[in-house]
């Protein structure tokens, strides 16, 4: 009891009041709906597409379905590939943005965010036109011989990945740029001075220097792409469904809400588990840094934080 009291006393009332709105928001719009979805997965389905009255484990057991591992696997590899490609493109972009002359930098940043000004659906339709079997791009590629006459550009995992990268690239560039902007570029000179080649300095000093930006960018890209629905729906073929499409199919076509909920629960867990892991790593590093800084401060000033 005294321990609990101690902890409670540690929480400042003012701090609590400040966090209350965001905590309440999270509770009402994230935690409660998630719990409801988890609960529905254990209910029976009724004949009219609603939720039945009794509890059952059948839906969960039916998740062990030969169709699912393929879809789950595709969802994961498409999302992970998307994240890796986005990072590989964005890290050099962030580096050059941060080193760019201030006058040009704001124009370059504008180019990064300009796609947000157009509706997402419109942009996906634009890609559909661009990649279409009768589109100019495909004709050109066939003409140059890069593409075979019978090879499509659209309706496969490749087209999904391409548009995923296109869509999520700004979400990787922005946090990476924020981290790179705070990076002390003198450190690269120090590394060169100590004998590191330019690429070596980049990998051994710049990359660790923006590691927090890399973690944030990974989360910003990985999480929403795991839940992709529109892109595979519009650009994917019959055999390139992702989890989001399957869930939609259960809701709209088969009208089986418990099954949709079970799959949604799987999706939530696939997102939550790596996310919590990454947050744990980031948090531990931050508290370690903060502890070190306060320790140093109190060591040098005699003031205890």
């Amino acid at each position: 009891m005294s321990k609990l009291n101690g902890r409670l006393r540690g929480i400042n009332l003012g701090e609590l009041m400040l966090t209350l709105p965001s905590l309440g928001w999270l509770m009402v719009f994230f935690i409660l709906p998630s719990l409801i979805i988890f609960a529905i997965a254990f209910r029976t389905a009724d004949a009219y597409g609603g939720i039945g009255d009794s509890w059952t484990l059948e839906t969960i057991l039916r998740l062990v379905n030969p169709n699912y591992p393929g879809i789950i696997w595709r969802t994961i590899w498409l999302s992970v590939s998307n994240t890796v490609i986005c990072l590989a493109v964005s890290i050099p972009v962030a580096y050059y943005l941060a080193r760019m002359d201030r006058r040009w930098r704001q124009w370059a940043m504008l180019l990064v965010v300009v796609p947000f000004w157009t509706n997402f659906l419109v942009r996906v339709f634009a890609w559909k036109t661009l990649l279409h079997t009768d589109g100019t791009l495909r004709h050109f590629l066939v003409w140059t011989g890069i593409l075979g006459a019978d090879q499509p550009l659209l309706y496969n995992s490749g087209s999904i990945l391409l548009v995923l990268v296109y869509t999520y690239l700004p979400f990787a560039i922005l946090p990476l740029y924020a981290a790179a902007e705070k990076f002390d570029f003198n450190l690269l000179e120090a590394a060169r001075d100590l004998g590191a080649s330019s690429p070596h300095a980049f990998f051994s000093v710049f990359m660790p220097g923006i590691s927090r930006g890399i973690v944030t960018a990974s989360i910003m890209v990985l999480v929403p792409s795991l839940g992709s629905y529109v892109i595979p729906e519009m650009l994917g073929g019959v055999d390139s469904d992702m989890l989001g499409n399957k869930i939609a199919q259960y809701v709209y076509t088969e009208r089986n809400l418990p099954r949709a909920s079970a799959l949604a629960a799987v999706l939530i867990l696939t997102v939550l588990i790596p996310l919590l892991g990454m947050m744990y790593i980031n948090n531990r590093r931050q508290t370690r840094d903060r502890k070190e800084i306060t320790d140093t401060l109190s060591h040098h000033t005699g003031i205890r934080a």
Binding site: E189, R192, D193, P208
Partner: peptide, 20 residues
Amino acid sequence: LPPEKRKVNTVFQNYALFPH
């Protein structure tokens, strides 16, 4: 010669120590 090929080393004004 590029900096990494020179047999000189620098003590920088702000030290430029690697924080990681």
